[in-house]
Each structure stands twice: as structure tokens, then as C-alpha cells.
Amino acid sequence: MAVRQLNVFVENKSGAVAQITELLSANQIDIRAMVLADTPDYGILRLIVSDTDKAVAVLEAEHIITKVIGITIVRIKNEHGGLSRVLAILRDNNISIEYMYAFVAVSGEEAFAALRFENKEAALHVLNEHNVPILHSEME
């Protein structure tokens, strides 16, 4: 099972992201990773949090739109060229990435890349074939 990513539709107005993080903080939900996609009209906040179900309940109570999806997280050695090697494998196998973001583990030894694929099954197949370690839902 992949890691669950919480997606939040963010209104284009000042304080919209702060409202979300405050709600999470007030409910003792920790943010493991976060990235904001912005457009002129709205934003999409993508989060990996300590308790996804609770976060959804908290946000929906405030009429904030959410969607939870499974995201593929690959484990990368925090060293020169670590991410590049994984991306090269995907490229060589014609796997398209919708979007991605990377973050470093607290220890600093490991890094993670969260990847959203067009064709997830094919991507997982390629990653497994090349022994790229994939993180499972232990993050929550």
C-alpha cells in the first residue's frame, strides 16, 4: 500500500494556507511533507500528515475540499546523484510523472521523492524491477 497524500483545494486569498496549517496544528496533526501547486485562480496543497483521516474530518468540518490519494514514495540515498538515478530509470522506461516533490528524513541520511504517475502500475513495475526501494504506509 502506498503512502496517503492529502490534497487540499486552496482559495486564492491571503491566509488560506495558514488557516489549514492552524487547523492541523490545533488538532495535533503533524505535517511530514508539504508542497503547494499554484495557479492564478487557486492552489492545490499536497500534504503527508501524521493522521490523514483526522485531517480530512477537521478540514471538511470547515468546508475545505480535500481528496486523499495514494502516492508513491521512493527512498533515495542522500548522496550526489541519488534522485537523478531514479528519474533516469523512469525516463528510460517511458514513465511519465504528473508531479513530484522531494524531502529529506530527519536523520539526514535518507531522502524521499514523492511521485504522482500517469500510470501508477507500470511505474511500480519498473521501480521494482530496478530494485528502487518504495516506502509503504509506515509514515503515518
Partner: peptide, 9 residues
């Protein structure tokens, strides 16, 4: 809520 997608596309 059910019309939201995680991609801008």
C-alpha cells in the same frame, strides 16, 4: 468535494 482533483491538469 467529489469534483476535486489533486492535479492542476
Amino acid at each position: 468535494p467529489d469534483q476535486f482533483d489533486d492535479t492542476v491538469k
